[in-house]
Design a protein around this nucleic acid. Structure first.
Lengths: 339, 339
DNA sequence: GGGAAACCTTGGAACGTTCCCATATATCTT
DNA sequence: AAGATATATGGGAACGTTCCAAGGTTTCCC
């Protein structure tokens, strides 16, 4: 194991002190141009790589923030992570990813041992309450509707109620006067979307009903079948998410209903599946990338002392971002004969 | 910023030396039971968290391995990462995730600065050749078909040729005698799958043709349309992956062909979409979880000195794992009238 | 009962940085 | 010309661990 190159090797080769080399490499403080160049050149020649652990020791700063992802299997978080990543980088911080489902609470321990400067919780994080309690004094921001909220963490999320309202407006504008919602009560997104749906339907004087389904395809299939097989069936279905909408799509097909001729169908989240030509599902696109950016900036602010330098932690704050409707081929005017 | 509690605080409270505390906390070496208990208790009371950076300094070992993921958007890697994660843990190593598309070569720099003990490359990693050159002396394993192979890295991958052969056998057994393949030549998976397809079709004396498509839905749609609109159309289509298969599905629908009545369709990768009821696509399930495990064990062996303690790096080795066919509703016997 | 082997304990050195301070020189200000 | 400021330089301490060597017990075996 050839001992790796240290800053002392670089300093020696450049003919300067280790302090000067350190300054030159980081680009802070006073170093003459000549020395700076010599140091940089020596570093390049030797293939010098700063040792992150030693740097963390010396500076008492790790420069990293931990991102706890809810579930890698559900890549809805990708745009959010992109936004986070970019904005964190601008603040001189580096993200480290971990999967909550996969690693569980040891993940939090690991982040704490790495002395992360802040934590971003991405998604719902089922059953994370106890683990989250451990991060108490650290700056934390949660992006996406939280179930387990870390004590005092700021929350940046999409305005799910508004998204649901937009779906109703879209369907109503197409002429639908009887809409059913396949909901997922008890989940944060489920509750917000249902509330938005019902409020707007009421406001627009559209007949509506909400049935309990769930967030999975299976749940959408079952609830869809129930609603569509009933005596008086709605002309449009709004599912709590794209998965449930796809389940409902299967249910409609089973019953011989064509989408969108006999039934309009809308989902939520604008997942890649919704965009498939074979599916073409009308959905709602969360401004997740922007949410990630906002969260990162918020966190950077909290880490950098925050707006209340004396207080132990900035007060919990909730930022809501408006989503965007993506109309596709699964929604159309209702059949004329109906009603 | 209350200075965090160190091992010295723990040692003082337990009434032992820092060395004893260190030994007790790690569970190595000789410590009396009484002291061990006292130390553990003191640590718990104080909420002691070892400082990973300091530990890395002292031991000259980081205990972490970097996982470079090709693209978070394509969650095919999840089972592989699960397998990796579990097996690495058993070897006392911790995985750190990074996304190649998102972060690019700075990701490699970061891993090197963190002094990771090994690197796992997950997936194809387009354009990563130069970055990968930098990891030269580190143990590295690549899981999934590589395009950019790190010099001397071992490769653990799925036997794509075998998977393609199984698809052909399945279709032939159903009675198909004319099969087309929508391929993605030039990509590692594309080439292997096409070769397997053609070899088996030839062996079974089944008429076949391969057309160039690509790995996306769009590519599958275009190539599917071309093949299906031709004068003599095949009774079955085998696409290079599920996305392309879904594109072909749309093409078939556009042409008024019902799947599987008029046309059987198979994909590859067994993505969640293939499993959706509304889709029901016959596909091939890669043994990715197992691939991850094998890769992790291989890497752990390389890190722990490896089978050739003198050599600079174990010779590149390729492990092939057999995949499994998942027959679903998109494949059926061909229509009797045809041919 | 004498020596070896196992068990236990500890203080100091080392790891590779950054930070802090002391000092030196150049450049401005009046 | 005398300070004041900005610029530059380097030596030593600190960060929180693990490792090492050295010493002290106990246990075991012949």
């Amino acid at each position: 194991m050839a001992r790796s190159v240290t800053i002392l090797d670089v300093a020696a080769r450049a003919g300067v002190s280790k302090s000067a080399a350190s300054l030159a490499l980081r680009g802070t403080g006073y170093v003459s141009d000549a020395k700076r160049r010599a140091v940089l050149e020596a570093a390049a020649e030797l293939g010098y790589r700063p040792n992150a652990a030693a740097r963390a020791m010396g500076s008492r700063r790790s420069g990293i923030v931990g991102l706890i992802l809810d579930d890698l299997r559900n890549p809805w978080f990708v745009p959010a992570v992109e936004g986070l990543s970019a904005a964190l980088h601008d603040a001189g911080l580096r993200p480290l990813l971990g999967d909550w489902r996969l690693e569980g609470s040891p993940l939090v321990d690991r982040f704490l041992e790495l002395r992360v400067e802040g934590i971003v919780l991405v998604g719902t994080l089922d059953g994370a309450e106890s683990a989250l309690a451990g991060i108490a004094p650290l700056p934390a921001v949660q992006v996406g509707s939280p179930r387990a909220q870390a004590a005092g963490a700021a929350v940046v999320t999409n305005d799910d109620a508004e998204g649901a309202r937009r779906v109703v407006r879209h369907l109503a504008a197409l002429g639908h006067r009887d809409i059913a919602h396949l909901g997922a009560p008890g989940t944060p997104v489920g509750d917000a979307r249902r509330t938005g749906f019902e409020d707007e339907a009421r406001r627009l004087r559209v007949a509506f009903r909400s049935v309990d389904a769930g967030l999975t395809e299976e749940a959408g299939y079952r609830a869809g079948k129930e609603v569509l097989a009933a005596a008086h069936r709605p002309t449009a279905l709004f599912a709590v998410n794209d998965m449930a909408a796809l389940g409902a799509l299967s249910a409609a097909e089973d019953l011989g209903l064509a989408v969108p001729r006999d039934l309009s169908l809308a989902g939520y989240d604008d997942t890649p599946v919704a965009r498939l030509r074979a599916v073409g599902l009308t959905s709602v696109d969360n401004a997740s990338r922007e949410a990630g950016q906002v969260a990162a900036r918020l966190l950077a602010e909290l880490i950098g002392g925050g707006p209340l330098p004396g207080a132990p932690r900035a007060t919990a704050e909730t930022v809501l971002l408006p989503p965007e409707l993506k109309a596709r081929s699964s929604t159309a005017p209702p059949p004329a004969v109906v009603r």
